[in-house]
Amino acid sequence: MIIANEYFNGNVKSLGYANDGKSTLGVMEPGEYEFSTALHETMNVIEGEMTVKLPGSIEWVTYKAGEAYQIEANEKFQVKVVEQTSYLCKYQ
């Protein structure tokens, strides 16, 4: 089953699906966002880039197309996007 998700007044949209676990494939419009996790996440940047402040960090790190980062379950993290950016998020 495919599930449509929409966050931040439509500025972040994704399609959720189950294929060897749970994943979402989405797009973010330019902006600043704070996300919460329920499960461990691996975020793969497909196009564009994300500047991310991970839990417990004071530094912002930029991840570009082809790069990935991970967030543990039950955490919050911040993301800045300056251009439309697509991603694949895998949950474990």
Rank of each mutant, 00 (worst) to 15 (best):
Y69F: 15
I3L: 06
V52Y: 01
F77W: 07
G10F: 09
V81I: 14
A68C: 10
K64N: 10
S23L: 12
L25V: 12
T62D: 12
I3K: 08
M28P: 05
T85A: 09
E59C: 01
N74L: 11
N5S: 01
E6C: 08
C89H: 03
Q92C: 04
S36L: 00
A68N: 07
T85D: 12
N11C: 07
K80T: 12
E34L: 06
G21Y: 02
T24G: 06
N5T: 00
K90M: 06
S86L: 02
N44S: 07
S36W: 00
T37C: 05
K90E: 07
I46N: 12
I58L: 13
M50C: 09
V45C: 15
E29L: 15
D20L: 00
E49S: 12
P30Q: 07
W60T: 11
K64F: 08
V79G: 01
C89F: 00
M1Q: 10
Y17I: 10
A65M: 05
E6W: 08
K22T: 04
E72K: 11
E32Y: 14
Y17S: 00
D20F: 05
T42S: 13
I46F: 04
E32G: 09
G21M: 02
G16D: 09
V79H: 05
V12Q: 14
F35P: 03
K64R: 15
K13G: 00
S14D: 13
S36H: 03
E41K: 05
F8H: 15
I71F: 01
Y17E: 03
N11D: 11
Q92M: 05
Q84E: 11
L25W: 12
E75I: 06
P55C: 09
Q92F: 00
E41T: 03
I58Y: 13
L39A: 08
